[in-house]
Simulated assay, not measured.
Amino acid sequence: MTIYLPIAELPVAIFTIFAMGLAVGFISGMFGVGGGFLLTPLLIFTGIPSTVAVASVSPYMAASSFSGALAYLRKGLVDLPLAGVLLAGGVIGTGCGVALFTWLSSVGQVDLIIRISYTLLLGGIGLMMLTESVRAIVRTRKGNKPIVRRPGTHSWIMRLPLKMRFRRSRIYVSAIPVAGLGFMIGVLGAVLGVGGGFILVPALIYLLRVPTTTSVGTSMVLTVATMASATILHAASNGSVDAMLAFVLMIGGTMGAQFGARTGQTMRPENLRFLLALLVLSVGVRVAVDLVRVPHDLYVVTETELAP
Rank of each mutant, 00 (worst) to 15 (best):
F183Q: 04
G124E: 03
L245T: 02
M1A: 13
V194T: 14
T119G: 13
R209I: 00
V187C: 04
T40P: 02
H296L: 13
T51G: 15
L200W: 07
P269A: 14
G193K: 04
S174V: 14
Y118E: 03
D297E: 12
P177Q: 11
S215C: 05
V221P: 03
I14R: 02
A236F: 12
V294P: 02
L200I: 06
V33D: 09
G252H: 09
G252K: 14
A83P: 08
L87G: 06
E305W: 15
A236H: 09
T119R: 00
L298G: 15
V201R: 04
D111E: 09
I125H: 01
Y4H: 08
G126H: 12
V54A: 06
S117Q: 07
L245E: 05
R135S: 05
L104R: 07
A99K: 10
L204R: 02
E270D: 10
M227L: 13
L80Q: 00
V201W: 08
P161N: 06
R170A: 15
F66T: 06
I48S: 12
S240M: 13
V110E: 15
G196W: 11
G124S: 10
G47P: 15
I171C: 07
A88H: 06
G21A: 09
G29A: 08
H234T: 06
M220R: 08
L22E: 08
G260L: 03
S50A: 15
V292C: 04
V85S: 09
F26V: 05
L127H: 10
G34I: 04
F198Y: 11
L200N: 09
G108K: 05
G21D: 10
S169G: 07
V85D: 11
S240A: 14
P308R: 11
S174H: 13
S50R: 02
V134K: 10
S155W: 13
T16P: 01
S219Y: 05
P177C: 12
L100R: 05
T119L: 01
P308K: 13
T153S: 05
R135L: 04
M244K: 08
A8R: 13
L86K: 00
A288Y: 05
Y206V: 02
Y72L: 02
L39H: 02
R139M: 01
P202L: 11
F183A: 04
A228L: 15
A136M: 07
A277E: 05
G29C: 04
A257K: 02
G35A: 10
S106L: 10
L87W: 06
A175V: 14
P151R: 05
R150D: 09
G189Q: 05
Q265F: 08
V134C: 06
A190G: 04
R170M: 09
P81R: 00
I125W: 04
F274Y: 14
A8S: 14
T304L: 14
I48A: 06
A243N: 03
P81K: 01
T153M: 07
G239D: 05
V173Q: 15
